[in-house]
Design a protein around this nucleic acid. Sequence first.
DNA 1: TTCATAGTTATCGTATACGATTTCGTACCT
DNA 2: AGGTACGAAATCGTATACGATAACTATGAA
Lengths: 228, 228
Amino acid sequence: MTETAVGSTAVENAAAQSKSQQAYAAVKARIVEGAYTPGYRLVLAKIAEDLGFSVVPVREAIRRLEAEGLVKFERNVGATVSGIDPTEYLYTMQTLSIVEGAATALSAPLIDSVSIARARAVNEEMRECLEHFDPVRFTALNQDFHSVLFEHCPNPHILDLVHRGWNRLASIRSSTFRFVPGRAQESVREHEALLQLIESSADADTIEKAARQHRASTLDAYLAQAKQ
Amino acid sequence: MTETAVGSTAVENAAAQSKSQQAYAAVKARIVEGAYTPGYRLVLAKIAEDLGFSVVPVREAIRRLEAEGLVKFERNVGATVSGIDPTEYLYTMQTLSIVEGAATALSAPLIDSVSIARARAVNEEMRECLEHFDPVRFTALNQDFHSVLFEHCPNPHILDLVHRGWNRLASIRSSTFRFVPGRAQESVREHEALLQLIESSADADTIEKAARQHRASTLDAYLAQAKQ
DNA sequence: TTCATAGTTATCGTATACGATTTCGTACCT
DNA sequence: AGGTACGAAATCGTATACGATAACTATGAA
């Protein structure tokens, strides 16, 4: 995702990237890892000081994050980390179900047996993880699993949309399965089914539907949980 | 397309918007209407001078356009209007076929008979337009038609993606049907079929497939044309 | 006590200035 | 003549400075 130049130190990287990019990466990281929680007020001057930059590159970074939906910006007021109120979560998940489904279907014919094996190994870990349930680890593995499936998507635009969707969910991602523990088992089972569809070279439409439905089910489980 | 606020003068508008936003709107408009053709070099200082601003707000505007894919930006080199080389066109159309298909399907149950009638009227105009064929007008009507179908989509994220897709195509949009004139007739016919599906409350999957296929067919026609 | 209003503070928005990087042209060397 | 290296011009990147806006607070009157 990030352009980690292979074989270059962090220092070299810092020199290679503009401060805008550094600021972007820094703020994004803080959001994704939860240091800045939803609703958190992003004060430009403060961030600039923290990073040792002026405010100008920080502004650009924030605007970029805004375009990706991670930050909400109000003129003359400032930026806050986008909360994921339930409606937002619903919209994001629905969107992701569509683009990820498409990405997975387009990706499927290009997935070699090595990747399949890797995905299966990850899913196996998830299954083990069910015993002494660790939601954070489980959710991380879940992303690994799906990454294998959609990363081969030949259409970079669609792939980008998938990444953005995952990013938007990132801040609550660490706890997705905390809210719907019952869903975890089903999820593992559906993963295996997905893998078999891909192995058997099922037609694109079938794979797309399965992938979409898989995500939609997680959403439904969450909604059912949230309702009461 | 431009956000002409009803009942407010241009001056009031200028005051209400930040210069970043104005710059964004101005540059975007120039790109969409073709004043800045693909490959055109966007020099910050030049644009700033044209608009009477400093370069700072222009930078932000450019970055925003970059995030939307309308502009390509290279560090220490500058920005150029994103070309739509055939591969890009393909990727964009494919992406749009997916999100627009989904948007149309989600939108369908919410479309009232008035909107249907309006869409049908537009399609009728398109049919007439076939006689003395005017590609530009035809393509404009085509957007109007589809707008009616997907604008009711209740998921704002998906709707946003659809808009972005159309924007990306905007610079060549004015001439889409110039390249594939034979496609125009089919297109009109498929529009009517789509309307009937919506009227008869066909299930979401059927509508989605039809909408997606409709766009995919335009893409295929273009590719077949471009090949030889 | 409560509401309205004026003043204060925090923060954003933009202009200007200057240093950094790239690109292009020219001159020199082979 | 061709290629390389040096230098100049164009352009970008960032810092600093200041004006503009909105949120907050305190004060006074009803």
